[in-house]
Every structure is written in structure tokens, then in C-alpha cells.
């Protein structure tokens, strides 16, 4: 997981704040939240203090507390999501990156959440399902046979660093971490014959 994302919630309603946090948790985002029901002092001070990447703010509060420039610090690097019940107060729209109607259904709210979280690159939507490449399966075969990283690098004419990168990717794609597990996978997928293993048995014991 990447590092925690700072989120600031400024919303008078306790229920809305709790609901937001629940939905955020369900997106799978790793975050740290600061929340407040009111703005004591200025919005800018709050932002400077907590340095959030995402701000959820009640649009009425935003309307009465907005003094600043979206293109200047501390506002240019964060996303402001306005929370509204019904009508958005005049002039507030231009300060928000997004306006969320809190009366929407769960499906719609989740859809928006996932949208702006992925847009910000806060969750990497890497394709976990991709299968292993031909080169990776060469490496995997040798790992299963009990060769060390050094031996694999010599045999395949690649650097040890490259071998390690391949191994990392293999583990990520297959969800198998140990040499013994990779060996079982290789036998099941006919990358190696169990007969081949016998000769190298001693090498596979780390």
C-alpha cells in the first residue's frame, strides 16, 4: 500500500461525516482523516495545518468562508469536494473540483468516489490479473529448479537486478511468495517435470 492520504472533512452533520468515512473505507483507500463540524478561524488556516489532498466541505460553509485563490497555495494542490443537500450557493461551484449531492444513492456516491480517487492516482488500478510473460516464465522455471539469483542471471544473460525484478513481478502476479510454492505452481503448469527436481533437490533447500 502507498502512504496514507490526508483527508479533511468540514461538515456540521455528524451523520454525514460518519457516512463519508464509511464510504471512503469501502473504496480501499488508505487514508487519515481530520474532521471538524465548524471552521474556527479561516479555511485557509485549516488547510495549511492539515495539508490534505482531499477536502470534503459543506458548500454553505465554503460559501461563507472562501477567501483565496484556487491557483495559489495552499489550494492549488488539493481537490475540493463540495457537499450539498440541494442547491449549491452561488459562486461556490468555481471553487470546487467536484460537487457531491449527499442525497444520492450509495451506488452513485461510490461511483464518484472511485472516480476522483483513481483520477488523483491515489489508488493504483494495476491489472492484478495479468498473466506472466515468457521471460518471467523462463525465470520462474529456474527458480522452481532451485537455481539462485546469481545462477539465473548467468544462464539467462541478464543482470541479478533484472532477475529480482522478474521475481517480484512473478510473486505479485501469481500471489505466491515462497520457492516451494513457485515450484508447485511450475509443476501444475508443466513448466517443470517433477522428475527434473530430484537432481536439484539439495539446491532448493535454502
Amino acid at each position: 500500500m502507498s502512504e496514507l492520504v490526508n483527508i479533511l472533512i468540514i461538515e456540521p452533520s455528524y451523520l454525514v461525516r460518519e457516512g463519508l468515512k464509511t464510504l471512503l473505507t469501502q473504496t480501499g483507500l488508505a487514508f487519515r482523516v481530520e474532521e471538524t463540524a465548524v471552521i474556527n478561524g479561516s479555511f485557509q488556516k485549516l488547510v495549511e495545518k492539515h495539508q490534505p489532498r482531499l477536502v470534503f466541505i459543506n458548500t454553505l460553509l465554503l460559501h461563507s468562508h472562501w477567501h483565496g485563490n484556487r491557483n495559489k497555495a495552499p489550494f492549488q494542490k488539493l481537490q475540493i469536494i463540495g457537499l450539498t443537500w440541494s442547491d449549491v450557493p452561488e459562486g461556490v461551484l468555481s471553487h470546487c473540483d467536484f460537487v457531491l449531492d449527499i442525497t444520492s444513492s450509495k451506488a452513485i456516491l461510490m461511483h464518484h468516489f472511485v472516480h476522483f480517487i483513481t483520477k488523483l492516482g491515489l489508488i493504483n488500478d494495476e491489472k492484478g490479473s495479468e498473466s506472466i510473460s515468457e521471460r518471467e516464465s523462463d525465470v520462474l522455471r529456474l527458480v522452481a529448479l532451485g537455481y539462485t539469483n546469481n545462477e539465473i542471471s548467468e544462464r539467462l544473460f541478464i543482470s541479478v537486478h533484472t532477475v529480482m525484478t522478474h521475481r517480484k513481478n512473478i510473486t505479485r502476479k501469481l500471489g505466491i511468495k515462497t520457492v516451494a510454492g513457485l515450484t508447485v505452481y511450475s509443476i501444475l503448469n508443466k513448466l517443470v517435470e517433477s522428475g527434473e527436481l530430484k537432481g536439484r533437490a539439495s539446491a532448493s533447500i535454502e
Binding site: 501469481l174 508447485v184 503448469n189
Partner: peptide, 16 residues
């Protein structure tokens, strides 16, 4: 725990 983790994936994903 690594081996246990592997065993889960072997059974879930890779057993014929």
C-alpha cells in the same frame, strides 16, 4: 505465514 498464503492461492487459482 508465507507458505500458508501460497497454499491458498495454489488451491484457489492453480489446481486443475
Amino acid at each position: 505465514e508465507d507458505k500458508l498464503f501460497d497454499l491458498k492461492n495454489i488451491i484457489i487459482k492453480y489446481i486443475p
